[in-house]
Design a protein around this nucleic acid. Structure first.
Ligand code: MN
Ligand code: MN
Ligand code: MN
Ligand code: MN
Lengths: 220, 220
DNA sequence: ATTTTATTTTAGACACCCCTAAAATCAAAC
DNA sequence: GTTTGATTTTAGGGGTGTCTAAAATAAAAT
C-alpha cells in the first residue's frame, strides 16, 4: 500500500490519537491535531478507508487497522530516527527538530533508514524520550508516570516529555529538566495540583499541574 | 519567492539545460529532461514565468532569470551536499545516491543545510565530481575535459562524470575508473573516436567515444 | 418524544500537477 | 510566397488536498 505524504501525516495523527484513549478517534480531534478543517478530514477518511488502513463508520469515528498501524509505526520510526540524527550529529537543540523531522519522515528509501539506524547505533529512544519502533514496528515501551502523579518524597528519573512543542522544551531547558535528570517530589499543593520538585539534586522548581503532567518519569 | 517541489525540480532542470548551451531552452528539451509531456511543461512555464524565475516568450524558449538561477543553485547545493552525506556517512555507493538526493533536496530548512555543510566539513565537490555551490550560489568551476578530447600519450586525472546514471557509474566501478584516478590516453581510433586508456597506472581499458565523452579529467 | 445543540458529512469551489487530443505557430523545404 | 513538418500551446479533463457554506446526523436537554 502506497500512501501520499498527506495520507501518511493523517495516518500518523490517527495512530497517535488512538494510543491516547481506547475509544475510536473523532473527526474533530483529527482536525485539531492536523490543524485542518473537519470537512477536509471527512474527505481524507474516505480515502484512508478505501486503502483499508483505517476502519470507518460514518459519524462514528475511526479505528486504525493492523495494516494501518504498521504503516504509521514506520513513519513514527523514521520521524524519531531523524530527530536523533539532527540532535546527535547536527547539534540541533531538542526543540528545533520536530518541524524538520516532519518533512524528513516522508523520504522514501528503505536503504536510507536502515543505514541511518546503523549510523546512529540503533537508538532506542528519540531526543524527547519517545521509543523508536524497530523495522517490524515493535515498540519497547517503558513504564512512565507523569510527575504530578508521584507521591511527595518519591524520587525518579525523567525519561520523556508528553508535549514536544518548542515552547515546552525551552521551559524544560530553562529549569534544567533534561531527559535523564533525577527528580524528587518535595511538595504537592492539594488545591490546584501544582508541585515543587528538586531537579538534578540541585535546583528547586515550582510548577503547575499542567506542566508537571507533561514530564514523564520512571520511579525509583 | 516560494516554490513548490515540482517547480523546484523544473527550475533545476532548466538551469542544467541552460548551462549546457548558450541558447534559450526549449519546451521539448525540458519535457525530455523531466520525463513529462510538452503540454505539462508549457503549463509549468507559465507558472514559473509569473513567479519571475524564468523569462519566457511563447514559442521562443526559456531563459532563467538571475533570481531563478539563485534559487536553482540553492537546490543544486542541497542535492549535492546530501549526496556527499549519503556516500561519506551512510556508505551509499555513488550510483545509489541520486534518487534519494532528489527527494532530500526539497527539505525546507536553512539551518539543516548550514549544519549539514559544517558536519561534512564544507565539501567542494559531490561524489560525481560536480562542484557544490556555496550558500550564496557561487560555484568553483574546475577546467574539465572529456577524455575523448585528450591527445594520445597525454595524462590526466578523472575529476567528474557527465552522466551520473546508475548504469554508467557501475560501468565506471567495473573498469576501476574512480574520481581521482589517473588516466593516460594510449590510443585513439580515428574511425569511430573510441579510445584505449590506462587507468590508475595499472589497467588497460578500451571504450567507445560515447563512454569516453562522459568521463571528465584535468590534464596534467 | 420532541427540540436543541454539537458534530460530521456533503456540495461546490479553487489551487496544483499531470495527461491526451486538437489547434496554433514557427521554421524549413519547395 | 506557399506548403509541409515539427514544435509548442491551448482545451478539456482527472486525481489530490484544501476551504466555506449548507445539509445531515447523532447526542443531549427538555
Ligand atoms: Mn510529516
Ligand atoms: Mn520526538
Ligand atoms: Mn528533486
Ligand atoms: Mn551528483
Amino acid at each position: 500500500m502506497n500512501l501520499t505524504v498527506a495520507e501518511e501525516n493523517y495516518l500518523k495523527a490517527i495512530y497517535h490519537l488512538s494510543e491516547e484513549g481506547t475509544k475510536s478517534v473523532s473527526t474533530n480531534d483529527i482536525a485539531a491535531e492536523m490543524k485542518t478543517k473537519p470537512a477536509s478530514v471527512s474527505d481524507m477518511l474516505r480515502k484512508l478507508s478505501e486503502k483499508e488502513v483505517i476502519s470507518y463508520r460514518k459519524y462514528y469515528g475511526v479505528n486504525i487497522t493492523p495494516e494501518g498501524k504498521k504503516l504509521a509505526l514506520q513513519t513514527v520510526r523514521k520521524h524519531r530516527l531523524w530527530e536523533v540524527f539532527l540532535v546527535e550529529k547536527l547539534n540541533f537543540a531538542w526543540d528545533e527538530v520536530h518541524e524538520v523531522a516532519e518533512e524528513l519522515e516522508h523520504i522514501q528509501s528503505p536503504l536510507l533508514i536502515q543505514r541511518l539506524d546503523a549510523y546512529l547505533n540503533y537508538p532506542k529512544f528519540d531526543p524527547h524520550g519517545d521509543p523508536i519502533p524497530d523495522e517490524f514496528g515493535d515498540v519497547k515501551a517503558r513504564p512512565r508516570v507523569p510527575i504530578n502523579e508521584m507521591e511527595v518524597n518519591q524520587s525518579g528519573q525523567i525519561v520523556a516529555v508528553k508535549d514536544s512543542s518548542a515552547a515546552f522544551l525551552r521551559y524544560m531547558d530553562k529549569v534544567g529538566a533534561y531527559i535523564g535528570a533525577r527528580v524528587k517530589i518535595l511538595d504537592k499543593v492539594e488545591f490546584d495540583g501544582s508541585v515543587e520538585i528538586l531537579v538534578d539534586q540541585k535546583k528547586n522548581v515550582f510548577m503547575s499541574k499542567d506542566v508537571a503532567a507533561n514530564i514523564l518519569a520512571i520511579q525509583s
